[in-house]
Design a protein around this nucleic acid. Structure first.
Length: 570
DNA sequence: TGGACCGGCGCC
DNA sequence: AAAGGGCGCCGGTCCA
C-alpha cells in the first residue's frame, strides 16, 4: 500500500465538467511520464492503467470509485493530503481545495473551498462558489488552466513539501493512509450496513408501544410521562430539563442537573419512570421511525463517512449518526441469509498505542501479549485489581485531575515513566501553546481554531507559574493535546488496519460495511467468516508494524462471528 | 422563520 | 467544590 515499485505505478486522472477524464502515467517526481490521453469517462481511464496503480486525483468523492465498477488498489487524494499538509505546516484556516492549493503555488488570490454538498445530493447548488473563477457552480481554477496540469503541479508540490519535513517517511505513510481511508469510506458509503427495517420496527413496537397515528408521541412515553407527573403530584414534562429541575427542587432535592447519573442517586418515586422515559425518548428521537425512513433503504443503512472529520484524525459521519448506533437497536443489523457479520473490536487499543508510540519498554512488554491488557497490568501494579489498572491508564490518556484515579496514575507514572511522560509532555506542550503532533505527523489544530473560548494558550504565556496557576482554559487545552497524541495515533493505526484489510478482502465477496474508531464489521458468506477473522487479525498486526516500526506491542482483536450485531458482545 | 446555543445522551 | 478526551444528534429556548 505504501511501497511504490516504480515510477509507472502512479498515474493521475482529472475529471472534466462533461465527465470525460484526462489521464497519464507519472514519473517519481509526479510529472507526466507520457502524453496525457482522454477517456470518455473515469472508468475508461481507470481501466487503462495496471491494476496495482496508485491513482492521483483531486478527490475521491469526485472520482467516486465505486460507481466506476473498477477496483482501485491505491490512490493519492490531493485534497485530503492538502488538509493534512496544511495542518502540518500550521496553516489550519487555509482552504484545502485543489484550486486553492494551485493558487497558493502560483501566488494567485486563493479561492474559498466549495461548501460541503447538501445532505442527500452531491451536486453543489447553483450559487455556491460563484466567487473567484467560479465557473460551473464550483470554485474553479483560473480560466484556461488545464485541470490535469494543475493537479500534477499541486501533487508535485505536495511531494516536495512532504520530503522537506522532519519525518518524511511517516508523513508519506500518513498521506497514503488518509487516501486509503477515503477509498474505504467511499466503498462503505456505497455498500451500506445491512439493516432489517422489519426487525427495527418490531423493536420500536416492543419498546415504545405500537405506532400511534399521525406522528403522535408513542404510547409508552405518554404513560411514563404520566407516572412522572403523578409522582410529583403535578404536571411535569420529562423532556424539559428546567421543569424537571424545578420539580425536584420543590420536592426538596437540590439537584444541579437532570443528568441520569445524578438523578439515579435520588430517593424519589419520579426517578425510575423518568430514567426510563429518557432512555426510550432517546431511542424514539434518535433512532425511531423517522430515522428509519430517512436512512434505511433497500435493506441498508448508508452513512456518509468523513475520514479525518475530527481533529485527531478520527472519522465522523454526516447525518444518520452511524458512529452512535445505540446497543438496543443493533438487533436490526443482520447479515443476509447464509452470510455472517464478522464484528472485530481492537482490544484496549489506546494503551497499546501509548505503549508503542512512547517506546516505554516496560509497558510495551505488558502490551506484548494478546490477553486483556488491563488484567496483565493489574498483575504487575495493582494487586490484580483490573479496575484500578484501567482507571490509571484512562487517567493518563484523558488527563485525570482528581480522586482515586490521580493516585493510581501516580503509581503508573512510577512504574512506566516513559509512557506517562509521553502524554505529560503533550499536555504541557498544549498548555504552553506549542505544536503537538501524532506519531505519523497529524498536527493538533490551535486552540482557537475550534470551539469558542476553549482558550488560547497564548493568553497564558510561560510565566513560571505552576501548572495549577495557569488558567482553566490552558489546562483544558493540555487535556486536549494529551489525549490528541494517543487518540490521533490510534486513528492512524486504524487507517492502516483498514487499508490492509481492504486489500486482503479485494476480489472476494466479503464487504467492509462498518468502521467505528477501533471496530470493523465485515459482511461475508458464512463459510468465509473464519478467513475474514484471520484477515482482520493480520491487518491489525500489519498496521502496528507499519505505523510504529519494530515493537513487541501486539494489536489483537476481539472477534465475533454473528448473524446479528447485537450478538457481538461489544 | 432560521440560526446559534444548550442540556442531555448515544457511541468510541 | 469539582476537577477525563473526542464526536453527532435531538428537541428545546433564545434572539435577530
Amino acid at each position: 500500500m505504501t511501497r511504490d515499485g516504480g515510477p509507472a505505478d502512479r498515474w493521475a486522472v482529472a475529471v472534466a465538467d462533461d465527465g470525460s477524464a484526462r489521464y497519464c502515467p507519472l514519473t517519481r517526481e509526479g510529472a507526466a511520464a507520457a502524453e496525457p490521453r482522454t477517456a470518455p469517462d473515469v472508468a475508461g481511464a481507470l481501466r487503462a492503467a495496471p491494476p496495482a496503480t496508485r491513482w492521483v486525483w483531486r478527490s475521491t468523492a469526485e472520482v467516486a470509485p465505486p460507481a466506476t465498477g473498477v477496483h482501485v488498489a491505491r490512490c493519492h487524494d490531493v485534497e485530503a493530503a492538502e488538509a493534512v499538509l496544511l495542518g502540518h505546516e500550521g496553516a489550519f484556516g487555509e482552504p484545502r481545495g485543489l484550486p486553492a492549493a494551485f493558487a497558493r503555488l502560483r501566488g494567485l488570490p486563493v479561492p474559498a473551498d466549495r461548501p460541503a454538498a447538501a445532505p442527500g445530493e452531491g451536486q453543489p447548488s447553483l450559487f455556491e462558489g460563484a466567487g473567484l473563477f467560479g465557473g460551473a457552480g464550483r470554485p474553479g481554477l483560473p480560466p484556461g488552466t488545464d485541470p490535469l496540469g494543475a493537479l500534477l503541479e499541486v501533487y508535485g508540490g505536495q511531494l516536495r513539501r512532504t520530503a522537506a519535513t522532519r519525518h518524511p517517511g511517516r508523513l508519506t505513510l500518513l498521506l497514503a493512509a488518509e487516501s486509503a481511508g477515503m477509498l474505504v469510506a467511499a466503498e462503505m458509503d456505497a455498500a451500506g450496513l445491512p439493516w432489517r427495517a422489519d426487525v427495527h420496527l418490531a423493536l420500536l413496537d416492543e419498546l415504545l408501544g405500537p405506532a400511534p397515528p399521525g406522528g403522535l408521541e408513542p404510547r409508552r412515553l405518554t404513560e411514563l410521562a404520566a407516572e412522572v407527573s403523578a409522582a410529583f403530584g403535578f404536571r411535569v414534562r420529562p423532556d424539559l430539563p428546567a421543569q424537571v429541575l424545578a420539580a425536584f427542587r420543590k420536592a426538596g432535592f437540590p439537584v444541579r442537573s437532570t443528568r441520569s447519573w445524578e438523578l439515579r442517586q435520588l430517593d424519589h418515586p419520579a426517578v425510575a419512570p423518568l430514567l426510563e422515559y429518557k432512555r426510550l425518548y432517546r431511542v424514539h428521537t434518535a433512532h425511531g421511525r423517522a430515522w428509519l425512513r430517512s436512512w434505511v433503504h433497500e435493506g441498508r443503512f448508508r452513512a456518509r463517512y468523513v475520514p479525518g472529520g475530527a481533529a485527531s484524525g478520527r472519522w465522523t459521519t454526516n447525518g444518520g449518526g452511524a458512529l452512535q448506533i445505540p446497543r438496543v437497536v443493533r438487533r436490526a443489523v443482520r447479515a443476509d441469509p447464509g452470510w455472517r457479520l464478522v464484528v472485530a473490536d481492537a482490544a484496549q487499543l489506546e494503551p497499546r498505542v501509548l505503549a508503542a508510540v512512547s517506546g516505554d519498554p516496560a509497558l510495551a512488554e505488558v502490551a506484548g501479549q494478546d490477553g486483556d491488557l488491563y488484567a496483565a497490568l493489574s498483575r504487575r501494579l495493582f494487586a490484580g485489581d483490573r479496575e484500578r489498572a484501567k482507571l490509571a491508564v484512562l487517567g493518563a490518556v484523558y488527563g485525570q485531575t482528581s480522586g482515586e484515579g490521580l493516585r493510581h496514575l501516580a503509581e503508573l507514572r512510577a512504574r512506566y515513566p516513559l509512557a506517562v511522560r509521553y502524554v505529560d509532555d503533550a499536555a504541557e506542550a498544549g498548555e504552553r501553546g506549542r505544536l503537538v503532533r501524532t506519531h505519523l505527523g497529524r498536527t493538533c489544530p490551535p486552540a482557537d481554531a475550534g470551539a469558542g473560548d476553549a482558550g488560547s494558550a497564548d493568553a497564558f504565556p510561560e510565566s513560571g507559574e505552576a501548572p495549577a496557576g495557569r488558567g482553566a482554559a490552558a489546562r483544558a487545552r493540555g487535556r486536549f493535546t494529551r489525549n490528541f497524541v494517543v487518540q490521533g495515533s490510534a486513528a492512524e493505526w486504524a487507517l492502516l488496519m483498514l487499508a490492509a484489510l481492504r486489500r486482503s478482502l479485494a476480489g472476494t465477496p466479503a464487504e467492509l460495511v462498518f468502521f467505528q474508531h477501533d471496530e470493523v464489521i465485515v459482511h461475508c458468506p458464512a463459510e468465509q467468516a473464519d478467513a475474514v477473522s484471520e484477515a482482520v487479525r493480520a491487518a491489525g498486526e500489519a498496521a502496528g508494524r507499519l505505523a510504529f516500526g519494530p515493537s513487541p506491542v501486539r494489536f489483537p482483536f476481539t472477534v465475533a462471528v454473528v448473524e446479528s450485531y447485537a450478538d457481538a458482545k461489544g
